[in-house]
């Protein structure tokens, strides 16, 4: 059974460096169309494919991603 995961992105911290997108094996993240306070298009959840591998969180320079699994 494939593990199910869920990420929560603190969009206020995100600077849209896209590194999370780069490392995500499941295409679960994309940049949002909207802008955050700093004028970045912050990352957001793309589709429900997250397995909770946490690679995005390991990569995220802003420590903006919280990962749940279970």
């Amino acid at each position: 059974m494939a593990a199910k995961g869920k990420i929560t992105i603190n969009q206020g911290l995100c600077k849209a460096c896209e590194l999370c997108l780069t490392v995500c094996p499941d295409e679960a993240i994309r940049l949002s169309e909207g802008l955050n306070e700093k004028g970045y298009h912050p990352a957001e959840t793309a589709k429900d494919s997250c397995k909770g591998c946490a690679l995005c969180a390991v990569m995220c320079p802003e420590a903006a991603i919280e990962v749940c699994r279970g």
């Binding site: 199910k4 869920k6 603190n10 206020g12 911290l13 700093k38 909770g52 946490a54 969180a57 390991v58 802003e62 420590a63 903006a64 991603i65 919280e66 990962v67 749940c68 699994r69 279970g70």
Partner: peptide
């Protein structure tokens, strides 16, 4: 579901 990765406590909750 349990949290497997979150922002460390010692990292102040502010943008850098």
């Amino acid at each position: 579901m349990k949290i497997v990765y979150t922002r460390p406590k010692c990292l102040k909750p502010v943008p850098n």
